[in-house]
Design a binder for these strands. Structure first.
Lengths: 218, 218
DNA sequence: ATACAAAGTTAGATTAGACTAACAAATTTA
DNA sequence: TAAATTTGTTAGTCTAATCTAACTTTGTAT
């Protein structure tokens, strides 16, 4: 069995690898807010447990076993987020911090039950895919809103940041997953966008925001 | 904030004090399956945090602050058990081990939500009282089945042991909370009881079992 | 009342997971 | 390519929570 600390390293390594392919010690250190020497020593430990391929000065890679275990944790995290929103009435901006704790619970039955009660969801409340029991993840092809152009009509499908600050901002603008958004214009100077959706016919979104909104063409 | 280990000591001390009034190091050590010197040193630490009154060679007592914090953990444990049974479809024999983990989650909102969804229950699935938000516990007056006599008709109201082995045994005999039971006879030799309830007109229950069944006269 | 057993404490070791300081390797820049 | 910067490792320290061994105090029983 892996410790809580080990689980956090595995999950961080897994999510960073998915964004970036390779991960180095420095990046992992920053993500976890743990100093590099500590990360190095944990990598040696996880390497001894066959969860990480570790060689001095080389980028870090999860082993197949490491990927499976990391995916299992991510699965628990995302099922929990979905359960909190769908079955307990939490807002999508509240669930991340709670799920960070619940994901470490050791009880396959607990998460099985969530999965069943939710009807075996494929996505979490932020539009991220929930790994299946074998650790497979079905990635949907999303683009960043920031990469779209004036005139495009798109559907808001996922967010790439789940901080409560960002999600509260989206709430305040009535931006939620599934809504259709039309890009009215793109400001060349700062890449901010003027968009229209629902009852809001002219909202301005900064580049910082647009980069975190994942969309599908419609 | 208290660590996971500290929380476990507080909860154990609290539940032992409720049964017995006073608790000594040896009892706490046995309950937690942690050696006495470790318990002693933790008591000093909790004493420094004003959670326990500790003096060498004297029995252990929680401070008011310690009682509050312990009751809060017990509240989270029992709300969780109730939620698992009522909202997630678990059997009463499955929930204790899961709740042992969930009780440590730091999120008042999470347990508030459970409480609301459950309609502010007063008892958990084993008939134990759920402490209120101020840490008060309303104890109902139960007797042990083993202290009843032939001819008594009683209602099964709680169990004083929540191990899955015991609860599975009760399941196998169709014994659940709320049922009416008639005591047909008590065997003088071993204090076993022959009882009748539901469709079962002649079940024998050992003293060991009868001592763990808490009942109300009807 | 003394001796024995049980309970409790002290001292010191161990492990996991974090840190800082100092050094080494790799990469970037002038 | 040499110097400077960034990245990574080694060595050693610290804290929390556990343990064992040895000793002390308290309570019990002859």
């Amino acid at each position: 069995m892996n410790s809580l600390a080990e689980e956090n390293y595995l999950k961080a390594l897994f999510t960073l690898s998915n964004d970036k392919g390779e991960v180095n010690v420095n990046e992992l250190s920053k993500r976890l807010e743990i100093k590099m020497p500590t990360v190095t020593s944990m990598m040696k430990k996880l390497s001894a447990k066959n969860l990480v391929h570790y060689e001095s000065y080389k980028p870090l890679r999860l082993t197949e076993k490491g990927k499976m275990e990391a995916a299992a944790i991510l699965r628990k995290h995302r099922l929990t987020e979905m359960f909190l929103v769908e079955k307990m009435g939490f807002g999508w901006e509240e669930v991340h911090v709670i799920a960070e704790q619940v994901e470490h619970i050791q009880s396959p039955e607990f998460f099985e039950k969530m999965d069943e009660l939710l009807g075996f969801p494929k996505l979490d409340p932020h539009g991220s895919p929930i790994p299946d029991k074998s650790g497979n993840i079905v990635w949907k092809e999303f683009s960043k809103l920031s990469e779209c152009k004036a005139g495009d009509i798109i559907k808001l499908s996922a967010v790439s940041n789940t901080s409560s600050e960002f999600l509260k901002f989206l709430n305040s603008r009535e931006l939620s997953l599934g809504i259709k958004v039309k890009i009215k214009s793109v400001e060349p100077f700062d890449k901010s966008m003027v968009v229209s959706y629902g009852k809001r016919t002219s909202e301005t979104l900064s580049l910082t925001v647009c980069e975190k909104l994942l969309v599908e063409k419609v």
